[in-house]
Each structure stands twice: as structure tokens, then as C-alpha cells.
Design a binder for these strands. Sequence first.
DNA 1: GTCTATAAAGGGATAGAC
DNA 2: GTCTATCCCTTTATAGAC
Lengths: 204, 204
Amino acid sequence: MSPHRAAEPQHASSGRRAELLALAATLFAERGFVATTVRDIADAAGILSGSLYHHFDSKDSMVDEILRGFLDELFGDYRKIMAAGLAPGDTLRALVVASFESIDRRHAEVAIFLNESKYLAQFERFGYLAERSAEFRTLWTGVLADGVRTGDFRAGMDVEVVYRFIRDTVWVAVRWYRPGGALSARAVADEYLAILLDGIAGRP
Amino acid sequence: MSPHRAAEPQHASSGRRAELLALAATLFAERGFVATTVRDIADAAGILSGSLYHHFDSKDSMVDEILRGFLDELFGDYRKIMAAGLAPGDTLRALVVASFESIDRRHAEVAIFLNESKYLAQFERFGYLAERSAEFRTLWTGVLADGVRTGDFRAGMDVEVVYRFIRDTVWVAVRWYRPGGALSARAVADEYLAILLDGIAGRP
DNA sequence: GTCTATAAAGGGATAGAC
DNA sequence: GTCTATCCCTTTATAGAC
């Protein structure tokens, strides 16, 4: 509750810290977490590896901070959409668009989340990854089940299978989508929804 | 061309070699290639790490042999399908079914191919991974483009985007599909095709 | 085909000077 | 906030005995 400085995170997020974290995220995303050494990160930053430990406790701390920040933002977006109380079809559209926008804005973070979650989840420290996955599943299957009731989605479809299908197909786009490329996140989301909805949308 | 022994691979594939390779594949798939140590593999086999080098030159050789074997088999299946000269819609069905069956039969290999290709492709030795990807792309986009011409698939669809969509959505299923579980490979392929084809199939 | 023993390199992390 | 210097551990891989 310090005066005159509202929006700044508490501990020395002096800019340099964020800068180093962004560099680490890029490397973790490109080479993989295990294959990236703290020396790689330091090299990219133009400092020596020992100096990194002035900013972070450990390599684990870095990826931890990256993932927590990303997930907080993503679930914040999701909760806003759910709170809007749209029809299931529109909620699904909004969730897909928000997800592709996060791939656009947080490309490295999404790649780390997709590629490293399984490895990291085995350590206690990253237990929140499993919790978030469960939350994620509850949210999406809820929307799908609602839509089956209202007739927005095809009657009799297997909600669990369709959920996994959507989850995987959305996030896996991070493998080829390039922010700033020919296709905007919105355009990809629309192309994706065109394929998806003509498949699962209920027909009268 | 040694007599009396037809179907055996040339160098000491005495069974033990295949056994060790299967163990390594499981570990590479579960923990990731970089995170799996040769000691992990040796432990799983009940021998010491040095003993592994009686069978294999290096850790790289192991994953190399695993991937080559898998890709040879997969592309063999694909070529048989292409040689049958089916209509584009049926060719696509057959390719999808063959892919899900390979996820069923070669689960660990598919997981390694999906998760480690990007990392391995940076080394010269694994240059064939990029070649195979290109071959893969040519094959699938050819089928899709054919189908647009014949009317099997929706006119005006973006063949490149749909190709990436199919490629990613098929292989990413390895993340949740469990061989021997409630859903058979065939059942998953059918569910998948039901979603996919009602989205991209041309309507008269 | 496996073990013993060990080399050589690279990994994460620390203490204290500047 | 970064550097110097270095510790300690793990990793891949080898040589030769059994």
C-alpha cells in the first residue's frame, strides 16, 4: 500500500527484471525449458550467468513467474467472457477469439505452457498447472454442455471428446502462428471457427 | 544375403536391442528426450549406463533409430493409400484413420515425433525430419486441392490453413489418447472425421 | 552382454569484490 | 547490477575386465 506508486508490482520489477524474464521466455519457448541453460539466458542478456541470480532465485523461479503471469491474464480474460452471460455459441466464439489473441500477444508464454506443462507438473512447485487445467476443463465443458441443451450445438455430441479436440486444436496453433505475420489472430480464429462450428453447430 | 534368416535386420537386432529401444522410446515420450538421461534408460533396463554403449553409439543414435523406424512405417502406410487411387474424400478418410492407428500402435514414437522434432531438427543428423515434413505437406495439400477440384471439399477453402489444422489436430491427439483405453483408434478417427468433414465437406 | 571405474564436459548455483 | 572465481553435481561417453 505504498503511496504514489499504484500499478507497479511489489518487488523490484524495475524493468530490467521484466526484460530478463521476456528473454528467458523466448529461449524457453524456442529451445525448450530443459535444453535452455542459464548461461544461454545470460548470454542473450549480455551478462554473466551468476548475475542472473541477483534477479531470480533459480531457473525454476523464472519459468514459474512466466507461467503464473500468463495464466492469471488468460483466466482473467476467460472470466470476463463468462461474466457477460452470452449464449453458449457466442461464449464459445469469444473464448476461441480470446485464446487466439493470447497466442498473438503472449506467444512465448503459450508455447511454454503447451510444451513444458507436462514436464513441470511433476514438481510440487508447479501443482497449480494441474489446478488450472481442471478449471479450464470445467469452463469449456460447461459451455459445450449448455450449448447442447439450448440447441446451439449438435445434440448427442460427446462433450468430453469435443472439449479435448477444441483445447488441443486451439493451443497447438502456437506451433505455426507467427505474431505480425500475414494472418491476424482474429483471422485465424475466424477460419478456425468456420471449420469447427459447421461441424458441431446444431442444425434445425 | 545370409541364408536361413530372412526377416532379421542385419546388425544384432537380437531382441535385446529392440527391447532397449522400446524402453528408451517410452522414457523419451514420457519425460522428454533432453530430460531423459542414459542412466534413466539403463535403470529401466536393469543394467548400468555404460552397458548401453555396447548396443548403441550414443543417446542420439537411439532416438534416431526410433524416429527413422517410425517414419518409414508411417510413410509406407501413406504410400499404400495414395497408390489405391481413391477419391479425395476417401483418401483423406484413409489417411486420418492410418494416422490414428499409428498413434495407437506406435504411441511413444508419435509422441517423440510430435514433441522432439523441433529440438532435434536443429542438428544435421536429423535433417531428414524437415524432409519428411515437406513430403508430408505435399501429400496432404495435394489431397485437399484435388478434393476442392472434384467438389469433395468446400470450394474456396484455404488449403494451407486446413492442412495445418488437420496435421496438428491429428497428431496432438497423442497427448490424451491411450492405447487399450475405452476409445479405439478407429472410434476416435470416426469422431474426429465427423467434426472435420461436416466442416470442410462440399455441399451441393 | 554386462560390470567396474573413470574421464571430460557442462549444468545450476553461490560468495564476495567492484 | 554485474563480474570474478569457483564449487559441486550430473551428464554423456570410454576402456578394459569378466
